[in-house]
Every structure is written in structure tokens, then in C-alpha cells.
Amino acid sequence: MYFILFISFLIIQRLTELYISRRNEKWLLSKGAVEYGREHYPFMVGMHTLFICSIVAEYYLAGDKQMDYLFLGLFILLLLFKFWVLSSLGTYWNTRIYRVPGAGPVKKGPYKLFKHPNYVDVVCEIAIIPLVFHLCYTAVIFTVLNAIMLTVRIRVENKVWAN
């Protein structure tokens, strides 16, 4: 029962993020934003979709796993951090890479502390979310896949903001 509630919450949260991203995309495009990294975006979406599928598959293949409240607590802290990141970026936050001509990178909230706090959050989420139900295979496999994806993505983003 807890797993169904947890995975339902996770899916609703991810769909809400896509909705916010789409809304922000319209605003960014109205400001003349240019998209970068379009070629890797479908792979990123696919990876995140497979991540959720893998959580469900491993949970049901492994049998009923008990919830780990320490990792659940860490996940809740990550949600609070993500909220801080997204609210700091405001309408500039997106799942895609956009740059509005003449605009510089955001320098408030966690962006005052380090360069890519959103990606720090994603790295932690990919590792921690499966561990809420002791799903170690999903945690390890998708941590590696995410590291590869973020290597590509951060390289593109750093190049965009270097100009």
C-alpha cells in the first residue's frame, strides 16, 4: 500500500514538473529564448521514464519490500531543496536548456552557493528514491546512467553560459 502511494506521488510530482516546465517554456520563448541540447533531450526523458518503470518492476520482482524511513526522510529533504531551486529560478526553470538573449545565469538561492544545484538534486534523487524501498539495482544502474547523461547535459549548459 505504501509503495502504491509513494510511486503515485512520484509520478504526479514528475508530471507536475513537466507541466511547470511547459508553462515556463512558453514564457521563455515569448522572451526570445533559444533552446540548446535538443538532441540529447529525448534520451533524458527516456531515462527518467525508464527509471520509474524500473522502480515498479524491481519492487514487484523482488517481492514486498519494507519502506526505509531514513531514505524517505532524505527524499522529503530533497523535495524541499528542489522547491528552493525551482523557486529561485522562477520562470527560468525548465527541463530543457533555454537561454534568453541578454540574460545571465540566475545568482540567487542555492545558485549563490554552487553552479548546478538542480543537478545535485537530481543526482541525489536518482540514488535515494529507489532506496526508500531497498531497490538497489535501480539505484545503482540509474545513478550510472544519470551520471553519463549529466556529463553531456552539463557540458552543453556550461558552453551556453560561457558565451
Rank of each mutant, 00 (worst) to 15 (best):
Y60E: 08
A103N: 09
W161D: 03
E17W: 04
I4E: 10
P117G: 09
F9N: 04
V140D: 02
S30I: 04
A139R: 14
K112R: 15
Y36F: 15
V45H: 01
E125W: 12
E58L: 07
N158K: 07
E35M: 11
K65I: 02
K115F: 00
L61E: 06
G90R: 14
N118F: 00
K26T: 15
Y36E: 05
R99T: 08
R99M: 05
A162P: 02
A127L: 15
R153A: 00
P110G: 02
Y98T: 06
N94W: 09
Y69E: 11
C136T: 14
V120R: 01
M44L: 13
G63Y: 11
T91M: 10
V34D: 02
F51P: 08
A147K: 03
A57P: 06
G46V: 10
V122R: 01
G104T: 12
K107Y: 00
L145E: 04
E25C: 08
R38W: 00
S87Y: 12
K112H: 10
R22P: 05
S54L: 12
M149K: 03
E17D: 09
L135F: 07
I55Q: 01
V160G: 05
Y111S: 06
L5T: 02
R99Y: 02
L80H: 05
P130Y: 14
R14A: 09
I52P: 05
M1Y: 06
M149S: 07
C124P: 05
T151Q: 05
L86R: 09
K115D: 04
K65L: 07
K31F: 05
R96G: 04
W161Q: 00
W27N: 11
G37Y: 00
R155H: 08
P117L: 01
F9W: 12
I55Y: 03
L15F: 15
T138A: 13
A62M: 14
L78M: 13
I55V: 06
G37Q: 02
I11M: 11
Y36C: 05
V140G: 02
E58F: 11
A57C: 14
K108Q: 10
A57E: 09
T91W: 07
K159T: 04
I148F: 12
L86M: 15
N118C: 02
T143Q: 05
K82I: 01
G102A: 03
V122H: 02
